[in-house]
Design a protein around this nucleic acid. Structure first.
Lengths: 368, 368
DNA sequence: TACCGCAGTGAATCATGAG
DNA sequence: GCTCATGATTCACTGCGGT
């Protein structure tokens, strides 16, 4: 499946795994075409011998302080390069997630900031079943760190607040996520029965990332695709994916894995939406429609203030005139006020919030 | 109290708070004289406007002059300078702890590595009672990150493995620590009754750091002393401290605080930990972890109603959407409903209550 | 005394669409 | 680009005063 964007730019190779070096492959894709990037880059230590210095000379084996510094410099260059290529691919309101451990995450985080990304949260994946520290020389390494960042400061990134709140039993989702590591049937094995990839991430982690920061139909890119957890979960959740992976063995495992995944029901993909998604209803419409009469009294929630409805949908309360929000804020001496939940009217002796009338109009709108 | 080291170098001003800029003060102290450094440097928060809670009260933000930097470059230079001065002071087998948030910790971590420190662990302080995200635009910022590093690779740092294991009910201490923020009587107030310092750290945090990585009699330096949590806990635990603090107001509060501390107070206060309540398991976690599939049917205990699972851990049953509890209550016309015991799923033709899955997760959690 | 409700608060990069 | 009006948004815990 491919797609051409509005400008007729090169088509996007959706739901495929592209072979090759991720920086070169990303640079060949059309800019501003991707909604989310999830990246699990290699650690510093694993790159020894594969890395090149900024001047392209080979990095020697690391056995003293200066080589250590060279290794850091090379890793920084590599990080900067792929983050730059990734940022070019992101739509203006796109975002990125990067996961790492203390070996590399500090360098990655600093590079993200240097490249102009804007950090939204750092998220700790707290492993419920980590590998213990056998030698008792350090603390059990029981977590990894993810960084969530928008393409730039002020961007309107996607955040499904209500959906994550639902996932967390009605309480705001925190920056520390307790999830088990990938084991059992989920852990992919090669033909010898060994684990197919050393750092396969659990699908539960990607589930939370994708539910929280993408919408169905969004394009999700993973430049270090590995065995394709990002692709598998994206497919389940009705998102499009693009994977990039250098190693053929991983690509093959991932292809097979993803082909077996079934997408969830359309209805199951619907997620709790916040009130921000609801259409705006001007207060004046309640008056126009006769739900409230001009001259009718409104009462504040705390019953301390009264105000009178005027024919143009404004209120008069004491000395103050203006919208339901302005009058409420002025009377309470508050910086702002949600008039919809602040004001009530009386019907048959009962006090009813005016928001009930707004809900009525909205439900009529939905039936059209 | 002062002490002269073996080489007859200048005496160390033990158990005092030195005024002035921490870099200059550190450079005037004798090299290789300190066992541990705990540093809580400025975080370089970049706050824009004011933030109000939903009840319209205003959040008292950290906008102090000492936290202002002109640019990342300026912050990096500052970080490099104080880390270099600190490293000179450390004994060869000394170590450092630095605490920060996503605003600064990545830059600090990278600078630590660049200066030749060797990271031993990153440790997450998971706050049991963090400030929520009031606008629903991000995840609750519920943790801070500490980096624990030795002076150099291969150094024989102090690690009291058994002591920390005891603190953790006989289980190996992990890299994530759940501790409450500093409130109540422990939180120091000024003469107006306002908080004396905007970012006072809890003593429980320092207790764990010092028990784990120092021995009695060790010298602990804190270059950003603030109101002296490091000094207070060091004194309780029989460690020597050196504080450096620029602001006179903080120094005065710290002096008074520490003068009241008596060694071993802590021991007397050590009470056996209360029994743990059963951990809360959000229903959404069953979905994330693939124990239930989005789109899957659930059946009510009495087999009268069905509902479908959604990707965010909510249910749809007929016209009703919401949590397992809400949908159950609505369908039964009851004021409330325990969804865990009300809903069942089918596996291999058998009907199983979803509570079985919750028990499964809890038993995994207990095996940590 | 015990219990209950209300007010206060904590390292925060915390809005968005119409005109 | 800009300004302005609309209106969405919180968890855990402490301390105090009233019953």
């Amino acid at each position: 499946m491919t797609r051409t964007n509005a400008k007729g730019a090169p088509a996007l190779p959706l739901n495929t795994i592209l072979p090759g070096d991720c920086i070169e492959v990303m640079n060949a894709l059309p800019e501003a075409s991707v909604d989310l990037i999830f990246a699990d880059p290699p650690y510093n230590l694993q790159l020894k011998g594969q890395l090149h210095r900024p001047d392209n000379s080979q990095v020697d084996a690391v056995d003293d302080h200066w080589d250590q510094f060279d290794s850091f410099a090379a890793y920084d260059q590599f990080t900067k390069d792929w983050l730059k290529a990734a940022r070019r691919l992101l739509k203006p309101n796109g975002a990125i997630w990067v996961i790492g451990s203390y070996h590399n995450i500090f360098r990655v985080g600093a590079a993200l900031q240097n490249e102009g990304y804007w950090i939204l949260n750092d998220v700790v994946w707290r492993k419920s079943n980590p590998m213990p520290n056998f030698r008792g020389k350090r603390l059990t390494n029981a977590h990894e760190t993810m960084i969530w960042a928008s393409k730039s400061e002020g961007a309107k990134y996607t955040f499904n607040y209500e959906a994550l709140k639902s996932l967390n039993e009605g309480i705001q989702m925190r920056s520390d996520w307790v999830l088990p590591i990938c084991t059992g049937h989920e852990r992919l094995k090669d033909e010898n029965g060994d684990k197919a990839h050393p750092t396969q991430k659990p699908e539960s982690l990607l589930h939370r990332v994708l539910v929280g920061s993408t919408n169905p139909g969004d394009v999700v890119l993973d430049p270090f695709f590995g065995t394709g957890t990002t692709g598998a979960v994206a497919k389940m959740l009705g998102r499009e994916f693009i994977g990039i992976e250098r190693e053929e063995a991983y690509r093959k495992v991932a292809e097979k894995r993803i082909s077996r995944v079934r997408k969830f029901d359309r209805e199951a993909l619907q997620v709790s939406a916040g009130k921000r998604a609801e259409p705006r209803v001007p207060f004046g419409q309640l008056v126009e429609r006769g739900m409230l009469r001009p001259g009718e009294q409104l009462y504040s929630m705390n019953n301390r203030y009264k105000a009178k409805v005027r024919a143009d949908g404004t209120l008069v309360g004491g000395e103050v005139k203006g919208s339901i929000h302005q009058v409420g804020a002025a009377l309470e001496g508050a910086p702002s006020c949600n008039g919809w939940t602040y004001w009530c009217f009386k019907r048959d002796g009962k006090v009813v919030p005016i928001d009930v009338l707004r809900q009525q109009i909205r439900s009529e709108m939905r039936q059209n």
